[in-house]
């Protein structure tokens, strides 16, 4: 029995090591100077940790000819993220509320259509979407990429909120309507205050999802609005000459940092979000 317990912990610790190694390597290497990387190993602890590579990655890492650092991508991602998250969560909440509480005719059909729509790979939709957006002048623009994020966020957001509002008792809506409250008042004064937890879950899901997006940003944002993931890939995978591993890894870490912080600050909500987004209620 004792031996089995030891084996159990040994296995779990081994697994924990497997999961942490890529992050540890990136963190350690980003704190080393290039001379140390050339002679040493990426598995070794930094001898004299410093943030020089971080500064260089942030301020002056090169994307092709421009050497303005990953901060350009950071601010682009930020500008894409805030309106996309706010609008897609709001749209999801309103949709979920309208579907679950008001049950208009065709509600189930719309829900099924949305759910199936969520499974269509982006690749199937990309080219026609590019055509539509360029026809209305939104292709390669900030409003364009924001619209695309809202559109592709609709299925999961609607579903999460619908499942939540479907779990509330019907009496809530009935009583409010007897008191003369309408669609919007019930939503803002009764439903939203009840939805804090699910709102947090939805926001976390969208923040990590949109920050981590690569494909949509690559296709729809245009060069001037390219998000951090796109810029990161350019910095690392198209650089000429000797690879500055410390700068590349610092840039990688900076890109990973926002969702990592969200994760560590909100572990339980994050897990609820990904399982709700994944299992669909």
């Amino acid at each position: 029995m004792k031996a089995a317990r030891i084996g159990l912990y040994a296995f779990l610790l081994g697994a924990a090591l497997f999961f942490s190694i890529p992050l540890l390597i990136v963190v350690m290497t980003s704190l080393k100077p290039m001379t140390e990387i050339r002679t040493g190993s990426i598995f070794a602890l930094p001898l004299a940790p410093n943030f020089d590579a971080w500064v260089k990655a942030w301020m002056s890492a090169c994307t092709g000819l421009a050497c303005e650092g990953i901060r350009v991508g950071f601010w682009n991602s930020f500008r894409i993220l805030v309106p996309s998250v706010a609008l897609s969560v709001m749209a999801g909440a309103l949709n979920g509320y309208a579907l679950a509480q008001w049950k208009p005719p065709g509600a189930n059909a719309l829900l099924t259509a949305l759910m199936l729509g969520a499974f269509i790979p982006y690749q199937v939709i990309l080219y026609p979407m590019v055509k539509i957006l360029s026809n209305i002048g939104l292709y390669n623009s900030l409003p364009g990429i924001i619209a695309v994020h809202i559109i592709f966020g609709l299925p999961v957001m609607t579903l999460i909120f619908r499942n939540f509002y479907a779990g509330l008792p019907d009496e809530l809506l009935k009583a409010a309507r007897v008191d003369g409250a309408g669609f919007w008042r019930i939503f803002f004064e009764i439903m939203l205050p009840l939805s804090i937890n699910i709102l947090i879950v939805a926001v976390i899901l969208q923040v990590t999802g949109i920050w981590n997006d690569y494909l949509l940003g690559l296709i729809f944002a245009g060069r001037d609005n390219a998000p951090m993931t796109v810029q990161l890939n350019l910095i690392v995978n198209t650089s000429m000459g000797e690879q500055e591993h410390n700068v590349n890894m610092a840039a990688t870490l900076l890109t990973a940092l926002p969702p990592l912080l969200v994760y560590f600050a909100s572990g339980r909500y994050f897990v609820r979000g990904i399982t709700a987004g994944a299992v669909k209620g």
Partner: peptide
């Protein structure tokens, strides 16, 4: 669970180095 919060771009680059 933390890998789930990282983008596939970051994941791919980190593993490329490993």
């Amino acid at each position: 669970l933390y890998p789930l919060s990282m983008s596939f771009i970051v994941t791919g680059l980190a593993w490329q180095w490993v």
